[in-house]
Design a protein around this nucleic acid. Structure first.
Length: 863
RNA sequence: GCCGCUGUGGUGAAACGGUAAACACGGAGGACUUAAAAUCCUCUGCCCGUUACAGGGCUUCCCAGUUCAAGUCUGGGCAGCGGCACCA
């Protein structure tokens, strides 16, 4: 129809509608044109700085943000929208509830995704990243989120990364950063070391290449020192249980004992870690990891072994295997005998010492006792190499070993046999008793182990914050003095990875180091893992001052990472929203760094995120959307056609926020219709003088429906059930459309309820309704202020009570009818009238055994 | 293998232990239109029954249990998803 866009062209001025328009308006078919209206309000919000918060003056601080994106070359995809728009709806709701909501956004601009994009396009990251950031800012602004753009952060900006470097220096000074030669995960494709957390199923988290183990001199941060605190802190957090469990499992605290065995005919001993010392009488062999020091001594000839050749071949072969190959070998065990024997002091038996790569160098002591009677892996090893199997536990069903059924069962209960002084004891009692015994004799020592490894933070890549370390001519590391920060990322390097750290090629970096520190001094050439940059960015938001990524406190020598007053006031983040995939990466690093910063005295809180929510994943035909699969759905076409409001509402309406779901655009029409219908209902109110007609009264049922909706939408938003919130608004719209008369007050309240979901349309309608109110001189909300600054409506509980109510009648649990009664009817009256129901009477003829009345709900007869 | 989550119409989904399927999509029929789109109205879980109304039976992955009453609580299966995994 020709009127498309017509409404969009008028009404933007605050001029009153001309008289005489009323009659024609009712005949016209109005359509809402989102593209111009959304642009208009985005501009006005921007001009009025509505979403900027005065952090000092704010009275009811509410700090919320989403996990910031990395600026790769791709545009914002559905996943971003599914994360950001519901988060924004929640932030708007909180703001209307009267909180000073601080909702910033930034860019995780260092690291592999950004750098890989640069490598692919051949454009250096220092050039392409700012471009991508600019594009993404434009796109983010089109969503219409209430971001405080004055406090944007960008981790690749020197103003930011000097604080990343400052953080490293604090870690170094406090003994939490150290360099050591260790077997580390290495991705041959990305040409860099990876942290344990960044290896998924033996492959690189970023590119999927099988990861290999490499001995390298690397920088680590001592996250293991915080293992127990990271574990305990979880109990206080309002986080999804699933995420807390994942962190608990990742930390993997285990209590056990280190038992030391003398090796016959040598002065050597081997220490094995076990959590099941109760089965120690069943030990028939010992297995060492190929990297174990005892094995090394054999290889260098310090210990004489007849099997040296086989051992050497085995060790070199297994060191070449990738993580994936080790895993794929699965159940088939390999290994070689060393020819040495250990002595089990408990029963004075001689047990052979073997080498096998099913024992991991990095866990426990890198040596285990083989208990083939009660451990599947040991059993398989024993079978393969014809080693004896001894059973020492009888389970309750009389089975001496689960192994007999070819399944590994970690007995939860059972009784000891074949175990000397432990015989007859329950396995738990036996565990305690033998640990006491071993400690008394000096053969063992109770110990707690963790699965958690120290965080390997060095990367042999270009696009990251340089590690602020310099080496003196003796090779001893020193921190770059704070006054020399930012320790700039050199520009004179080829950024494409070649297996060595790109910074090592920088003449400028080496010259700079010698110039400042003297001849013979050299710089560290690794850069930091991007997860270091993102481990403290919430604090950085509080110190950011503008959209260019500059900060309030540029001087790192003052050690003020964040203004302590602001930090106390705003942290921890009240609501943090982002993907569950960060459960054991970013979310554990950020907690560790916050704890360390607290211990160093720079911040007052120990946990960064008080409440955490994960949005679900949007898939396409069941598969995760990814560029490589070519199944990424772009939001652009939908926004072009329906506008941001409709698109974000559709994403919220699709299903529960935390569930995600499979993408399909079949329902977006429903939301688009809803938006049009809302406009069609409310827009004419702004043009007519209908509301001045005092002879027409709004029906009480309309008020009642309105208040029911206020309650429903408020509760839905509080619990992030956006889908049911929207359906509540739809139900109300259905009522309003059928009503003969809708008051301006009702329309205003409806618009407020709509505001967090469809902010642009709500502002538009608010403006329209305010013009009317102003003319009518009858409203208090007459200012031309934004709807986002208006208070969230509250409901009147008395309006939720109706005069009559429907009581359902059940007989033996089956519904047999219902009855209308007055709201204030007594139990007796209600039961009496229930018995009068014609259909019910058929069933209760033979007498009633029991009568149950659930107030306001139902009557249940048992016959 | 271990840990966690999920399972409801043709579809996305609702449902303080209390009328299962709200809201929406899709579908069918109708109105308007030269026509299409858009819009509006009616119907829409399955089966029996009736000209029509009434009625009745069945139904939330499967099997038990608790309860006047179970999608919801308990136990045991099955299926799917996610995390961890040769971790001693």
């Amino acid at each position: 129809m020709a009127t498309v866009g017509r409404c969009a062209m008028k009404n933007y001025s605050t001029d009153f509608p001309k008289l005489g328009k009323v009659a024609t308006i009712q005949l016209m078919h109005f359509e809402y044109d989102p593209s111009s209206v959304e642009a208009k309000w985005q501009e006005r919000w921007n001009e009025a700085h509505v979403y900027e918060v005065d952090l000092q003056k704010a009275k009811k601080p509410y700090f919320t943000h989403v996990m910031f994106p990395y600026p790769s070359g791709d545009k914002l995809h559905i996943g971003h929208w599914f994360n950001y728009s519901p988060a924004d709806t929640f932030a708007r709701f909180k703001r209307m509830q009267g909180y000073d909501v601080f909702s910033p956004i930034g860019f995780d601009a260092f690291g592999l995704p950004a750098e890989n994009y640069a490598i692919k396009t051949g454009v250096p990251p220092q050039q392409s990243i700012p471009e991508n950031v600019r594009t993404m800012i434009t796109q983010l602004k089109r969503i219409g989120c209430m971001y405080d753009w004055n406090r944007m952060v960008n981790t690749s900006h020197p103003e930011y990364y000097k604080w990343t470097q400052w953080l490293f220096i604090q870690m170094f000074k406090n003994g939490l950063a150290y360099k050591k030669k260790a077997s580390v995960n290495f991705c041959p494709n990305c040409q860099t070391v990876l942290a344990n957390e960044q290896v998924k199923e033996g492959c690189c988290e970023r590119c999927g290449t099988p990861v290999i183990q490499k001995m390298m001199e690397q920088w680590f941060w001592k996250i293991t020192q915080y293992a127990d605190r990271l574990l305990q802190g979880l109990d206080q957090l309002d986080w999804p249980e699933k995420t807390k469990t994942m962190q608990r499992n990742w930390i993997g605290r285990k209590e056990g004992i280190d038992i030391t065995y003398a090796i016959e005919g040598t002065k050597e001993s081997v220490t094995c870690f076990t959590t099941r010392p109760d089965t120690n009488f069943g030990v028939t062999f010992i297995v060492l990891a190929p990297e174990h020091p005892f094995v090394k001594k054999i290889l260098i000839g310090e210990l004489k072994s007849d099997h040296k050749k086989e051992i050497a071949a085995y060790v070199s072969a297994s060191l070449k295997k990738t993580e994936l190959e080790r895993q794929e070998e699965g159940m088939s065990k390999t290994g070689v005998c060393t020819g040495f024997y250990a002595v089990n002091n408990l029963n004075n038996t001689k047990i052979p010492v073997w080498v096998s790569d099913y024992v991991l160098a990095g866990f426990g002591t890198g040596a285990v006792v083989g208990v083939p009677g009660h451990d599947l892996r040991d059993f398989q090893f024993a079978q393969k190499f014809k080693l004896p199997v001894v059973r020492v536990v009888v389970t309750s069903d009389g089975d001496t070993s689960a192994i007999e059924r070819e399944v590994q069962v970690q007995e939860e209960s059972g009784t000891m046999i074949n175990s000397g002084f432990l015989d007859g004891l329950d396995i738990h009692e036996a565990t305690e008793k033998i640990m006491d015994h071993l400690e008394e004799k000096g053969w063992g020592k109770r110990i707690v182990t963790y699965r958690l490894r120290d965080w390997s933070i060095g990367r042999q890549r270009y696009w990251g914050a340089p590690i602020p370390i310099i080496y003196d001519p003796e090779g001893k590391p020193h921190a770059v003095p704070e006054k020399n920060l930012p320790w700039l990322l050199p520009q004179d390097v080829e950024f494409k990875p070649k297996g060595t750290a790109p910074l090592a090629q920088s003449k400028e970096l080496f010259a700079r180091t010698e110039k400042i520190f003297g001849k013979g001094w050299t710089p560290e050439v690794d850069t930091m893992d991007t997860f270091v940059c993102s481990s403290f960015y919430s604090f950085m938001y509080l110190g950011a001052t503008n959209e260019r990524g500059e900060y309030r406190e540029p001087d790192v020598t003052k050690n003020v990472l964040v203004d302590p007053v602001l930090e106390k006031k705003w942290m921890p983040v009240a609501m943090y929203i982002g993907g569950a995939e960060h459960a054991c990466m970013h979310l554990i690093y950020a907690r560790f760094v916050t704890m360390a910063l607290k211990d160093f005295g720079f911040v007052s809180h120990e946990e960064p995120f008080k409440k955490l929510v994960h949005q679900g994943v949007i898939t396409n035909k069941g598969a995760k959307m990814s560029k490589s699969k070519g199944n990424v759905v772009s939001p652009d076409a939908f926004i072009e056609r329906h506008g941001s409001d409709v698109f974000r509402m559709y994403l919220m309406f699709m299903g529960p926020f935390t569930d995600g779901g499979d993408w399909s655009d079949t329902g977006i029409k429903g939301i688009s219709r809803f938006i049009q219908r809302v406009y069609k209902l409310i827009q004419p109110l702004g043009e007519s003088d209908k509301m001045n007609n005092k002879s027409v009264q709004e029906d009480v049922s309309v008020k009642r429906a309105l208040h029911k909706t206020i309650k429903q939408v408020t509760e839905s938003l509080e619990t992030l059930h956006f889908n049911t919130g929207i359906s509540g608004l739809m139900e109300l719209l259905n009522v309003l459309e059928k009503a003969e008369y809708v008051s301006v007050e009702t329309a205003q309240t409806f618009t407020k309820l709509l505001a967090p979901f469809a902010p642009h349309l709500a502002e538009e309608l608010w403006e329209i309704l305010n013009n009317v109110s102003f003319r009518a001189q009858s409203r208090s909300d007459t200012s031309s202020d934004f709807i986002i600054n208006k208070p969230w409506p509250s409901f009147d509980p008395s309006l939720l009570v109706t005069d009559t109510m429907t009581i359902v009648i059940q007989v033996n649990g089956k519904v047999r009818g219902d009855v209308q009664v007055a709201s204030d009817a007594s139990k007796e009256e209600i039961i009496a009238s229930a018995k009068q129901n014609e259909n019910v009477m058929k069933y209760i003829q033979n007498g009633i055994k029991k009568e149950i009345y659930v107030p306001g709900k139902l009557v249940s007869f048992v016959i």
